[in-house]
């Protein structure tokens, strides 16, 4: 699930940054004598007037035979992980058309989307609508919809929502045979000037 993955990776990156920053900060503050903390014996870090990066130790590691392959493969793995994470942000909405088992017809996703949109826009109180459907093979459980509804001034969102469920969404369910899609509806309103009573 992308939601969980995103939050997990963000918290991991946050912890890494916090840990690195905390380590650097404690070392720097102690070295600058700005605080008089007694660092525990297991603490590893540069002491006062040390260089931040120990060049001699780094050069010794570079001379080892395993250094270059480890660095290169580590960077490559990390790069691929970031790349897959980036690609996972795109939404997969399944094939562009589906074979309907009951009727044998082929249904284009775009056609169903525009039908749902058009029906939603006929509801009272709806100024505009947009529907995005997800249909995967092996049907029902993967039939999802995301709708954005723009409300007219003076609309009643509650009845509009009921109208959506009993109108376009129900019809989309019965026309595909998948049942009412798992739907997330977002209701917006467009800005307009208020009408004042004189």
């Amino acid at each position: 699930m992308r939601n969980v993955l995103n939050r997990l990776l963000i918290v991991v990156i946050g912890l890494v940054l916090l840990g690195g920053g905390g380590w650097l900060g404690v070392n720097a503050l102690v070295a600058r004598d700005e605080v008089s903390w007694q660092l525990p014996s297991w603490w590893r870090g540069p002491r006062a007037y040390d260089h931040l990066v120990d060049r001699a130790a780094l050069d010794r590691m570079r001379d080892q035979g395993w250094w270059a392959p480890v660095v290169i493969s580590g960077l490559a793995v990390l790069f691929l992980l970031f790349l897959f994470w980036l690609l996972a942000q795109g939404r997969s909405r399944g094939p562009a058309s589906l074979l309907l088992r009951r009727s044998g017809g082929r249904l284009r996703r775009g056609a169903l989307e525009s039908a749902v949109t058009a029906e939603a826009e006929t509801l009272p109180g709806v100024a505009g609508a947009r529907a995005r459907l997800t249909m995967k093979k092996r049907g029902q459980r993967r039939f999802r919809a995301r709708m954005t509804v723009v409300l007219e001034p003076y609309a009643e969102p509650g009845p509009v929502l009921d109208g959506l469920v009993h109108g376009p969404l129900k019809d989309a369910g019965s026309s595909t045979g998948f049942g009412i899609p798992a739907t997330t509806v977002r209701m917006r309103a467009t800005g307009h000037r208020g009408r004042r009573v004189r």
């Binding site: 969102p157 929502l161 959506l164 469920v165 969404l169 009412i180 899609p181 798992a182 739907t183 997330t184 509806v185 977002r186 209701m187 917006r188 309103a189």
Partner: peptide
């Protein structure tokens, strides 16, 4: 149904 709605 399996419908969730949010109002901005």
């Amino acid at each position: 149904g399996d419908v969730r709605a949010f109002l901005d």
